[in-house]
Amino acid sequence: MSLNDSAASHAITTIDLIRHGEPKGGLLFRGWRDDPLSILGWQQMRNATAGYFGWDAIVTSPLTRCAQFAEELSSKGGIPMETDERLKEIGFGEWEGRSPEILYQESPQLLSDFWNNPVEYPPPGSETMAGFQSRVESAWQDIQLAHAGQHLLVVAHGGVNRMIISTVLNIPLSHLFRLELPYAGISRIRIEQGCPRLVFHCGSLS
């Protein structure tokens, strides 16, 4: 191990995860569907960050509902920003763009099974949970290495941020959607001596 590697392993890295705000179009299964934020969604994101510019860098999903806000924050705060394709939401297949309420009316058991165990009961034609887990965990590992010792903001999605938190806490993949995560919800993870810890979930930056 080099001196630089040793220093990096002892550096404290703080990573804030924020979910995007409400998108235009209302409550839908919205994975790879690229809707922008609604007016309320922009307000939710601006309120959640509340003029805070203390990050060393921003990493964002490529999807519009994340990337446009990340670009605004980067521009206003003079914070370097990068996009990681691996941070896009899980693909919901045939459920993309459909209302959970209507799906529940059509197939209540199918929807209930998915929420209770998305590994065994994925939406038809969707991205597999194993594939989703693999790409998000790959991004998560690379982000930690690239930004060791920094305070970072990750702008992503409900599924992505749940996956990262589940990885940190060793929560079974089948229990992924048991984590509540509202629009513009923020969680903080601190990594010290290679050990990640959840500092807060759905908390405040202030």
Rank of each mutant, 00 (worst) to 15 (best):
R33H: 05
R33I: 02
R33K: 01
R33W: 01
D35H: 02
D35K: 05
D35Q: 07
D35V: 00
D35E: 11
P36S: 03
P36L: 04
P36F: 00
P36M: 00
L37V: 12
S38M: 04
I39H: 04
I39L: 05
I39T: 12
L40R: 15
L40W: 05
L40K: 14
G41L: 04
G41K: 09
W42I: 09
W42E: 13
W42F: 10
Q43W: 07
Q43M: 14
Q44H: 10
Q44P: 11
Q44D: 07
Q44T: 10
M45W: 08
M45L: 14
M45K: 01
M45V: 11
M45G: 09
M45F: 05
M45A: 13
M45T: 06
M45C: 15
R46Y: 11
R46N: 12
R46V: 03
N47Q: 13
N47D: 15
N47S: 15
N47H: 15
N47C: 13
A48F: 06
A48S: 15
A48H: 04
A48W: 10
T49G: 01
T49C: 12
T49A: 01
A50F: 07
A50L: 03
A50R: 11
A50Q: 11
G51I: 07
Y52I: 10
Y52D: 04
Y52E: 06
Y52M: 01
F53C: 07
F53D: 08
F53P: 00
F53M: 06
F53K: 06
F53H: 14
F53S: 07
G54M: 00
G54K: 09
G54V: 04
G54Q: 00
G54H: 00
W55Y: 14
W55S: 02
W55F: 13
W55M: 00
W55H: 01
D56M: 07
D56Q: 11
D56P: 09
A57H: 13
A57K: 12
A57I: 12
I58Q: 00
I58S: 04
I58V: 09
V59A: 10
V59K: 08
V59D: 12
V59P: 04
V59H: 10
T60A: 14
T60G: 08
S61Y: 09
S61A: 06
P62A: 08
P62V: 09
L63Q: 15
L63V: 11
L63P: 07
